[in-house]
Amino acid sequence: MKSFAWLLLLILVSSAGLQIFLPWWVITPLCLVLAFIWPVSGGKAFLAGFIGIGLGWLVLASWLSVRNEGLLAHRVAQLLPLGGHGWLLLLVTTILGGLVGGLATLAGAWCRFAFFTPKKRLAN
């Protein structure tokens, strides 16, 4: 449980810091490398990436939406098939960001398992 919480916190803080200066897709290599370095199972890795990136994007998108009274979210939601609901756009943004982070973290955990196979599994 400790490793899951630390990975989640590390993803949340480092992705928020890096996305200030770099493009949005920096979360993919970041999550992949962090999961490769940090020893967690596949399911916990996906969940840590999904929650870490999704929560970060939700907080940032909500903060930006509140600052402009939801006008931009409403207008973008009108362009997409969301019926002009800005809150639905925030939900879609959170889920998409979470899926990108979760899948990248899962790939990093799987790469770790592929390169560093435990000795117990080699005996079978």
Rank of each mutant, 00 (worst) to 15 (best):
M1T: 10
K2Y: 08
K2T: 11
S3F: 09
S3A: 14
A5P: 01
A5L: 15
A5I: 14
W6G: 11
W6N: 12
W6A: 13
W6E: 08
L7V: 01
L7E: 05
L8K: 08
L8S: 01
L8Y: 13
L9Q: 03
L10A: 15
L10I: 15
I11W: 09
I11V: 11
L12G: 08
V13C: 07
S14D: 09
G17Y: 09
G17L: 09
L18R: 01
Q19D: 05
I20K: 12
F21G: 04
F21M: 07
F21L: 12
L22Y: 07
P23Y: 02
W25K: 04
I27R: 06
L30V: 02
L34M: 06
L34V: 02
F36H: 01
F36A: 10
I37K: 08
I37Y: 08
W38D: 01
W38G: 00
S41A: 09
G42K: 11
G42F: 10
A45D: 03
A45Y: 05
A45W: 06
F46P: 02
F46Y: 06
L47P: 00
L47M: 06
L47A: 07
A48V: 08
F50A: 09
I53H: 10
I53P: 08
G54P: 04
L55G: 09
L58K: 02
L58T: 11
V59G: 06
V59M: 15
V59R: 06
A61W: 04
A61M: 13
A61V: 12
A61Q: 11
S62N: 09
W63N: 08
L64P: 02
V66R: 12
V66S: 12
N68I: 05
N68M: 04
E69G: 07
G70H: 06
G70S: 02
L71F: 11
L72E: 12
A73Y: 13
R75S: 10
R75I: 06
V76R: 02
Q78N: 07
Q78Y: 02
L80Y: 03
L82V: 03
L82E: 00
G83H: 03
H85T: 01
H85W: 09
G86Y: 06
G86V: 05
W87N: 11
L89E: 04
L89D: 07
L90I: 14
L90N: 09
L90C: 09
L90T: 07
L91P: 04
L91D: 08
T94P: 00
T94Y: 01
T94C: 04
T94H: 00
I95Q: 04
G97R: 00
G98F: 05
G98M: 02
G98I: 07
L99N: 00
V100W: 14
V100H: 12
G102V: 08
G102S: 05
G102A: 03
G102Y: 05
A104T: 01
A104K: 02
A104V: 03
T105D: 03
L106K: 01
L106W: 09
G108M: 03
G108N: 02
C111F: 15
R112I: 03
F113C: 11
F113N: 13
F115V: 15
F116I: 13
F116V: 14
T117F: 14
T117L: 14
P118H: 10
K120Q: 15
K120P: 12
R121V: 15
R121Y: 15
R121S: 15
L122A: 14
L122G: 03
L122Q: 15
A123C: 12
